[in-house]
Amino acid sequence: MLGDRRDTRAAIAAPPEQIERGVDYPATPVDAALLCLALDPRDGSEFKPAAIGSAEPLSCMTMQENTVTSTIVIDAPPARVWAVLTDFANYPDWHPSLEVLAGQAERGSALHMRIAAGTPAERVAEGEVLEVEPDRLLVWEGGMKGLLWGRHTFELTADGTATHLVNTESFTGAMAADVLTASRALLEAEFAAANEALKALVES
């Protein structure tokens, strides 16, 4: 372990690619947060700043990751649910809080989204589609790197003639914990409302 906090301060100031992974930098909670913020939020899992006074290192992902999940059963086969989820252009017709302004349901497609549409928290974000497995899995990510970055997953599973849908978003970044503490109930309500709107459209 590096024993001098000057090493930690040097790492905070260094470009991300020069921050050595696998090193237990001694860190106060503030130092640890700054080190995590210095890294790409998707690259924190192998970096563990050691908290001063603690015998265990703190993982950036452990400190920063927060997840919101909502599930629902839709009385329709996965193919019908999938057709609606991947028709981004029509999200404004049914989704209560998300508009996909540009992008396709194709792996690697760039997304331009309006999040929390129609609320005081409305904002525009850029993202990218990461995974597309027809009738089973759709994953994208986006937001503000280092501050509030979300990975959104729709997972579909056949349940007889119906579909069990898991709608999840994992948030990372320096603002993630505070945002989830202040807004978890609102986010959970938004996710549940989106699920219900999807169900109503698919079953109609």
Score class of each variant (00 low, 15 high):
residue 66 N to Y: 12
residue 27 A to S: 14
residue 38 A to G: 08
residue 17 E to V: 13
residue 33 A to Q: 14
residue 58 L to D: 00
residue 50 A to N: 08
residue 21 R to T: 01
residue 14 A to M: 10
residue 75 D to G: 09
residue 39 L to K: 09
residue 73 V to E: 11
residue 32 A to C: 07
residue 67 T to W: 14
residue 33 A to Y: 11
residue 70 S to H: 15
residue 13 A to T: 06
residue 16 P to K: 10
residue 45 S to Y: 09
residue 17 E to T: 10
residue 69 T to K: 15
residue 52 I to Q: 12
residue 26 P to F: 06
residue 75 D to N: 15
residue 41 P to G: 01
residue 18 Q to K: 13
residue 50 A to L: 14
residue 12 I to N: 04
residue 38 A to L: 06
residue 65 E to P: 07
residue 68 V to N: 05
residue 55 A to W: 10
residue 40 D to G: 01
residue 22 G to Q: 04
residue 42 R to G: 00
residue 61 M to K: 10
residue 69 T to W: 15
residue 26 P to C: 08
residue 21 R to F: 06
residue 23 V to N: 02
residue 57 P to L: 09
residue 43 D to F: 05
residue 24 D to C: 01
residue 55 A to Y: 08
residue 47 F to S: 02
residue 22 G to P: 04
residue 50 A to K: 15
residue 34 L to M: 13
residue 73 V to F: 03
residue 74 I to C: 05
residue 54 S to P: 04
residue 54 S to Q: 15
residue 27 A to F: 09
residue 25 Y to D: 01
residue 60 C to H: 02
residue 45 S to P: 00
residue 45 S to D: 10
residue 75 D to S: 14
residue 54 S to Y: 14
residue 12 I to M: 11
residue 24 D to N: 04
residue 15 P to F: 13
residue 30 V to T: 12
residue 12 I to H: 06
residue 54 S to L: 13
residue 48 K to D: 02
residue 36 C to F: 10
residue 37 L to S: 09
residue 42 R to L: 03
residue 35 L to E: 02
residue 55 A to S: 14
residue 24 D to G: 03
residue 31 D to N: 13
residue 56 E to C: 01
residue 33 A to C: 10
residue 48 K to A: 07
residue 21 R to I: 01
residue 17 E to L: 07
residue 74 I to Y: 09
residue 46 E to I: 03
residue 71 T to A: 12
residue 37 L to H: 12
